[in-house]
Simulated scan of single mutants.
Amino acid sequence: MLKILIVEDEPLLATTLKHLIELNPRFQVTNIADDLATALEAVEERRPDLALIDLQLARGSTGFSVAVKLNELGIACLFTTGKAPPFAMPDLALGCLAKPYTEEDVVRALKAAEDVLRGRERLRPSLPENLLIYNPADPTSDGGDEETFLDPDAYAARQSIRTRLTRWLAAT
C-alpha cells in the first residue's frame, strides 16, 4: 500500500483529492497539510511514501520549500498544480500532475509514481496527458520523452540541497 500525504491549501480540493485517492485500495492518505509547518507535523505523526504537493500554499509557503524539506527526509514528492512549472525539477519531485484532473488521472499518476519508487519498469506506461514525469538524469528534461527510463536509484540516493541546487542552476 502506498501511503500519501496531501499538501494543499484549499480544503475542498484537498478533501476531494483524498476521496479520489482512497477509492483505490492500493493507496492510503496519511494526512492533509496546508503549508510547510503542518506538512512537517504530518510527517512526524505518520510517515508517507509520497507527498502530493500544490505549489501555491497557505501562509506564504510554497510547494518548493515543502518539497525541499520532504526530500531531505527521504520522502518522494509529486507536484499537483494549476500551472506546471516551465522547467523540470527532478531533484525536488518525481513529476507534476496539472490541474484539473480526473479520478483516472490521479490513479494513473499514483501508479506511475509507485512504479518509480518501487523500481518497476512498465513496458507501455499509461500516463495521463496532464502528467509530466521528470528524468533525474537530465535536469533539462520536460518529462515528454516516453523512451526515457526512470531510474529509481536516482531518487533513492538524494544529494544535499546545496548540491542539487548547484546542479540545477548549472543546467539553466
Rank of each mutant, 00 (worst) to 15 (best):
F79W: 07
K69M: 15
D35A: 11
P125N: 13
Y155M: 04
P100R: 15
L132F: 12
E121R: 09
D105F: 06
Y101V: 01
Y101H: 05
G63M: 06
L117Y: 03
R118M: 08
C77T: 03
A39S: 07
K99W: 06
L23A: 15
D105C: 05
N31D: 14
L23H: 09
E103H: 09
G82P: 01
F87Q: 12
T102L: 04
A42Y: 09
E103F: 08
A37K: 13
T30A: 07
G63N: 08
D105I: 05
P25T: 10
A156V: 09
F27R: 01
S141P: 09
L50N: 03
V106K: 06
I53N: 03
D91M: 07
T148R: 04
D142W: 08
A98H: 01
L40M: 15
S65I: 14
P152C: 13
G74N: 12
N71V: 04
L132V: 11
P25Q: 10
T30N: 06
E103D: 12
D54E: 12
R120D: 05
L110G: 00
A76R: 09
F64N: 06
R47P: 06
P152I: 07
E146I: 10
E44K: 07
T38K: 01
A33G: 13
T102S: 15
L40E: 14
R46S: 14
G74E: 13
V116F: 00
L94T: 05
E41I: 06
T62E: 03
L127A: 14
A67M: 14
G95N: 07
Q28R: 15
Y101I: 00
Y155A: 05
R46F: 12
P100S: 13
C77P: 00
A113W: 01
P152K: 06
Q56F: 09
E41D: 07
R124T: 11
A88K: 01
P86D: 01
R26P: 11
G143D: 02
V43H: 13
P25L: 11
P85Y: 10
V107R: 06
C77M: 04
I133F: 02
D115Y: 06
A42W: 11
Q159F: 10
A84K: 01
G63W: 01
Q159C: 08
L78H: 01
T80P: 07
L132A: 12
V107G: 02
L40F: 12
L131P: 03
R124M: 12
R47K: 15
L40S: 10
R59K: 13
K83H: 14
E44Q: 11
L97T: 00
L78K: 00
A76Q: 12
Y155D: 03
Y134V: 10
A88H: 02
F64P: 02
D91Q: 11
D49V: 14
D153T: 13
Y155S: 03
N130H: 07
T140L: 07
E45L: 15
A84E: 00
A39K: 00
D54L: 09
I21D: 02
R26Q: 15
D54C: 10
P100Y: 12
N24E: 14
L70V: 10
